[in-house]
C-alpha cells in the first residue's frame, strides 16, 4: 500500500463518523419523508404510495394554496423591510460611530438576538397587545382613542419577524461594510462624488453580496418558522409551517405534513436558485 493510499484511508476514517451520522439522521429521514409524502391516510392508518394525492390536494385545496401564498407574502415583505431597515443601521454603525465604540454599538444592536426565540416572540405579544405598552403609549399621547387590533394579525407576525431579521442582517451587512477598504469611498469622493453618490454608486453595490447572503438566510429562516406566526399571528391565517403542525397535531396525517414539507423545501430551493448568482459574486 502506497503512502498516498494510507493517507487517504486515514482521512476517510476521520470523515466516516460525521458522514454516517448525516446519512442516518438527515438523508435517510429526509428520503423517508419524501416517500411518506407519496402515501396517504386511510382512517388512522398510513397507506404507502406512491401516489400524487397529497400534492394534488395541496395545489387544488384553497386552504393549502392560501397557506403557500400567505407564507410567501409574509416572507417577501419581511425580507424587504428588514433589508431596508438594517442597511442604514449597519452603515451608521460602521461609518459614523467612532472606531472604539463600534464593537459595543454592534453588540448592543444584536443583543436581543441572543435571547430565547420563544421568549422574544412572547415579549412582542406583551408589547403589542391591547393593554401593552405600545397601545397604552399611543392612547396616552392622544394619537388613538382605543386600542387597535394588532395582535393575532399579519402585522404582528411581520413586526416580530422584522425585529429578529433586522438584527441578523445588521450583522451580515456590517461585516461586509467593514471589510471594504476605506479607500473606495475616498477614491470616489476624491473624483468628485457627493456623499449620496458615494453610497449609491460605490458602497451599496459593493455590499450587494452581503445583502443577498443575509436576504437568503432571512428567506430560509422566515419561511420555515412556526413560532412567530403561531404566537403573534394566531390562527386567522395559517402559514405553511402552521399547516404542517396542524396536520401532525389534529389528525396525525404524516403523509400530508411530509408533502407540505417537501413543498416548503422546494420554495427554499427556488429562492436559492434565484439568488445563487449573487451569493458568489466576485469580489476584489
Amino acid at each position: 500500500m502506497s503512502i498516498e493510499q494510507a493517507e487517504r484511508r486515514r482521512a476517510s476514517a476521520l470523515v466516516a463518523p460525521a458522514l454516517l451520522w448525516t446519512l442516518a439522521f438527515f438523508v435517510l429521514p429526509f428520503a423517508g419523508m419524501v416517500w411518506l409524502s407519496l402515501g396517504h391516510l386511510e382512517g388512522r392508518e398510513v397507506v404507502a404510495g406512491p401516489g400524487p394525492e397529497n400534492y394534488v390536494r395541496i395545489f387544488t385545496d384553497p386552504s393549502f394554496l392560501k397557506g403557500i401564498r400567505v407564507s410567501l407574502e409574509i416572507t417577501l415583505v419581511v425580507t424587504v423591510i428588514s433589508v431596508v431597515l438594517a442597511w442604514p443601521l449597519a452603515w451608521i454603525i460602521a461609518m459614523r460611530v467612532p472606531q472604539r465604540w463600534q464593537r459595543l454599538a454592534l453588540m448592543l444592536a444584536v443583543l436581543p438576538f441572543w435571547t430565547s426565540y420563544v421568549v422574544r416572540s412572547y415579549s412582542w405579544a406583551l408589547v403589542l397587545g391591547a393593554n401593552g405598552v405600545v397601545m397604552q403609549a399611543l392612547i396616552g399621547a392622544g394619537i388613538i382613542d382605543e386600542p387597535v387590533q394588532i395582535m393575532a394579525t399579519r402585522t404582528a407576525t411581520v413586526i416580530g419577524f422584522v425585529h429578529f431579521f433586522v438584527m441578523l442582517l445588521t450583522l451580515t451587512i456590517y461585516s461586509n461594510l467593514v471589510q471594504l477598504s476605506p479607500n473606495y469611498a475616498r477614491a470616489a469622493a476624491d473624483l468628485g462624488a457627493s456623499g449620496w453618490q458615494v453610497i449609491r454608486l460605490v458602497i451599496l453595490p459593493l455590499t450587494l453580496p452581503g445583502v443577498m447572503t443575509g436576504a437568503f438566510l432571512t428567506f430560509v429562516l422566515c419561511i420555515g418558522d412556526y413560532i412567530t406566526p403561531q404566537i403573534l399571528g394566531g390562527n386567522n391565517e395559517l402559514t405553511l409551517p402552521q399547516l404542517i403542525m396542524l396536520q401532525l397535531g389534529r389528525r396525525g396525517d404524516f403523509p400530508m405534513a411530509s408533502a407540505l414539507s417537501v413543498v416548503l423545501m422546494a420554495l427554499v430551493t427556488l429562492a436559492y436558485a434565484a439568488s445563487a448568482r449573487w451569493l458568489k459574486m466576485d469580489r476584489v
Binding site: F30, G32, G224, D225, S258
Partner: peptide, 13 residues
Amino acid sequence: VSYLIIALGLLSA
C-alpha cells in the same frame, strides 16, 4: 433545511 423539516423527518424515522 428548515428545522421543522429536520424534526419531521426524524420524528417519522
